[in-house]
């Protein structure tokens, strides 16, 4: 039987801050199947980076265990390092006085890429991340986005079986971010597993198979992406604009609710509704609601991941309070 790419069991990590013990992770358990992309979501301080550092063998857990393809991150750290690449990204983590090519070669050597393979792979990766033209320039002259692309090339260089990506699209322009999403998706198709932590929910929406919601060091949700999005409590948002009298929406039919108070002035109005679930009846109900109004525009969009995230976050903060 194939081992899970990542297997975390009752993992806890605490730090000492003076005489106090601060718990960054508390009895966290989850698995990542080979070839899948799992997003780790959570507010700042939720424990995402601590989790990533433990899986990257940079930090020891205080209790519990974590395994990468069956190898324990504490006892078999070297084996884990051969299998997993980590991309923390950001402005640091590179040698600013050296060129992008020299950085890539050196980090490749650290990751176990031998000289012959490096000679073959380095130009390909520089081309893939769009840095061929700047490969021999010092990294200190790179923009934030170029540094991020170099980090990503470093992560991909040793052909890892598991990628730990922390905010991979930070600093990238929309085209570059889309290109990176394509590269991550391609890696998944080649069997690479990915743990993605990101505040950019578009990355998660486009890439993730599953979502883990981390809140104050504990896993609050562990759902497939579609199930997680359903946690928003509605399937779509309908925005209706019109002129003349404001429609009466005191008692909307079941399955339809007001997203916020209608807005309007003498010349026009706007109403935003949430549709719990699509069915043929919904169209008839919407037609009835606005039967006596002069509708000029209707826009329909699917519920977004950020709405599900906000709903889940407020639900958990409410349950704490």
């Amino acid at each position: 039987m194939t081992s899970p790419a990542v297997e975390v069991e009752s993992l806890s990590r605490w730090f000492r801050a003076g005489k106090q013990r601060v718990e960054a992770l508390s009895r966290v358990s989850f698995q990542i199947e080979p070839g899948s992309i799992v997003a780790l979501l959570g507010a700042n301080g939720a424990g995402k980076t601590t989790m990533a550092k433990i899986l990257a063998t940079l930090l020891l857990p205080s209790a519990g265990s974590a395994r990468i393809f069956g190898h324990d991150v504490v006892r078999e750290a070297a084996a884990c390092r051969r299998l997993a690449s980590v991309v923390f990204g950001g402005e640091r983590g590179l040698y600013p006085q050296l060129s992008g090519r020299d950085n890539l070669r050196f980090f490749g050597m650290l990751a176990g890429v031998n000289r012959r393979e490096g000679r073959h792979r380095v130009p390909i990766l520089l081309e893939q991340v769009g840095l061929s033209g700047a490969a021999d320039r010092r990294v200190e002259t790179y923009s934030k986005g170029m540094k991020q692309r170099l980090h990503i090339a470093i992560g991909f260089l040793p052909r890892p079986q598991l990628l730990l990506l922390d905010e991979p699209t930070v600093g990238l322009d929309p085209l570059e971010a889309e290109r990176l999403r394509g590269a991550i998706d391609q890696a998944r198709q080649e069997g690479v597993s990915v743990l993605l932590t990101s505040h950019y929910l578009l990355d998660v929406e486009r890439l993730a198979d599953r979502v883990l919601l981390l809140d104050r060091g504990s896993i609050r949700e562990d759902l497939h992406l579609t199930d997680f999005i359903r946690r928003a409590g509605y399937a779509a948002v309908v925005t209706v604009r019109g002129s003349g009298c404001m429609p009466r929406l005191d008692d909307p039919p079941p399955g339809i609710s007001l997203a916020n108070e209608p807005t309007g002035s003498g010349s026009g109005w706007e109403v935003t509704l949430r549709v719990q679930e699509w069915s043929p009846d919904v169209f008839a109900q919407l037609a009835t609601l606005f039967a006596t109004s002069q509708v000029t525009d209707v826009q329909v969009r699917e519920v977004r991941l950020e709405e599900a995230f906000a709903q889940a976050a407020s639900q958990h903060s409410g349950s704490r309070g």
Partner: peptide, 13 residues
Amino acid sequence: SNGTLGASMRGVR
């Protein structure tokens, strides 16, 4: 100071 210490310490080498 460069933020490269982690990479050196978690390398395969």
